[in-house]
């Protein structure tokens, strides 16, 4: 077998492993974090600090029977959870964790992540529709309209950044911000005075795209029971869960690369993978922190936010940056 094929396989296995490990331990981190915010300990019985809790949860989910509700569309019902997890793992392939650690550096890396993210919303749609549950259908329609409306400002913001850097390669994007935090994209420069706003828009959009609170309308438990995965149990539910956390990691990685200088150190010294991990976990901690602070938005409030605030501002920013890039 040729070396390139072997490399690809190893890369994919590492990507799956990283995604699964993150998904498992982010659940633990989320529960511990929520516990601390609410002044309770969180899971602390299984193992030291409850660190074995994800294993117990995993064992429970795997050994449970997979129930398929009567009248459900079996094929789509089975496919949907896989479709939720697979694109997330695929996106890991192109994310550069450091100068050298990347499975496959692609010239269109940014595009690839968005292309596969669009598959994720299809999985929600299929899950809700195929389980033949009214709550599921309502939730899936909500989640998809949400996904569509937040992809627009997100892509416009990405275009702004790509325009400044002149590349869609995630590696190039990160390298262009090397050498201290004053080179990062989040810091406003002459050509892009509105970058902090862009960052905020991108951050909000990635919260919405990953269906995180306060935008978790697809699984609004007080209205729609559990939303699109109401009928899922055992590993079907597990895959949705893991997919969600894998998506969070991808969202955080993307923010880190686009705005926070990738694996670069804030002071321009020793760029390494640790900086990258530190940044993405700080961002994920912020995601968790936000989730346990705010109530949920309404569906129309969410769409209003996207179409009336985020899209106009990001479009304005795009035009402004384009104009200023010509000037300077």
């Amino acid at each position: 077998m040729s070396l390139t094929v072997l490399n690809a396989i190893i890369a994919v296995v590492i990507a799956i492993g990283f995604a699964a490990l993150n998904a498992a331990y982010l659940v633990w981190a989320e529960r511990r974090g929520a516990g601390r915010i609410q002044r309770r300990p969180g899971p602390n019985v299984n193992g030291p600090l409850g660190l074995l809790q994800p294993l117990a949860d995993g064992a429970k989910l795997m050994t449970k029977q997979l129930m398929i509700p009567g009248g459900a569309d079996k094929a789509l019902f089975m496919v949907a959870p896989v479709l939720a997890m697979a694109p997330a793992i695929m996106s890991f392939v192109t994310i550069p964790f450091s100068d050298v650690i990347v499975a496959k550096s692609m010239d269109v890396g940014v595009l690839m992540i968005f292309a596969f993210a669009s598959l994720g919303s299809m999985s929600i749609l299929f899950a809700g529709w195929s389980s033949r549950n009214k709550y599921g259908v309502m939730a899936s329609v909500r989640a998809v309209s949400q996904a569509i409306s937040y992809e627009v400002p997100m892509l416009i913001t990405v275009i702004t950044i790509v325009m400044m850097t002149g590349s869609m390669n995630l590696h190039d994007l990160a390298v262009s911000q090397a050498g201290g935090f004053w080179h990062w994209n989040i810091i406003p420069s002459l050509a892009s005075p509105l970058m902090p706003v862009s960052f905020l828009i991108f951050f909000i959009c990635s919260l919405a795209e990953t269906n995180r609170a306060p935008f978790d309308l697809g699984e609004a438990e007080s209205e729609l029971v559990a939303g699109f995965h109401t009928e899922y149990g055992s590993m079907g539910f597990g895959l949705f869960f893991m997919g969600e956390y894998a998506n969070i990691v991808i969202g955080a990685s993307l923010i880190t690369i686009l705005f926070l200088g990738g694996w670069g150190c804030p002071f321009g010294l020793f760029p390494s993978v640790f900086w990258f991990l530190l940044k993405i976990y700080l961002l994920i901690a912020t995601f968790i922190w936000i989730r346990w602070t705010f109530p949920r938005t309404t569906i129309y409030g969410l769409l209003n936010l996207s179409w009336k605030i985020l899209i106009p501002i990001s479009l304005f920013n795009l035009l402004l940056t384009a104009g200023l890039l010509k000037v300077f």
């Binding site: 010239d107 269109v108 595009l111 690839m112 968005f114 292309a115 596969f116 993210a117 669009s118 598959l119 919303s121 299809m122 992809e151």
Partner: peptide, 12 residues
């Protein structure tokens, strides 16, 4: 690029 656009436009 075309592959990704195919995904983004047709699937997405």
């Amino acid at each position: 690029f075309v592959a990704m656009m195919q995904m983004l436009i047709y699937v997405g």
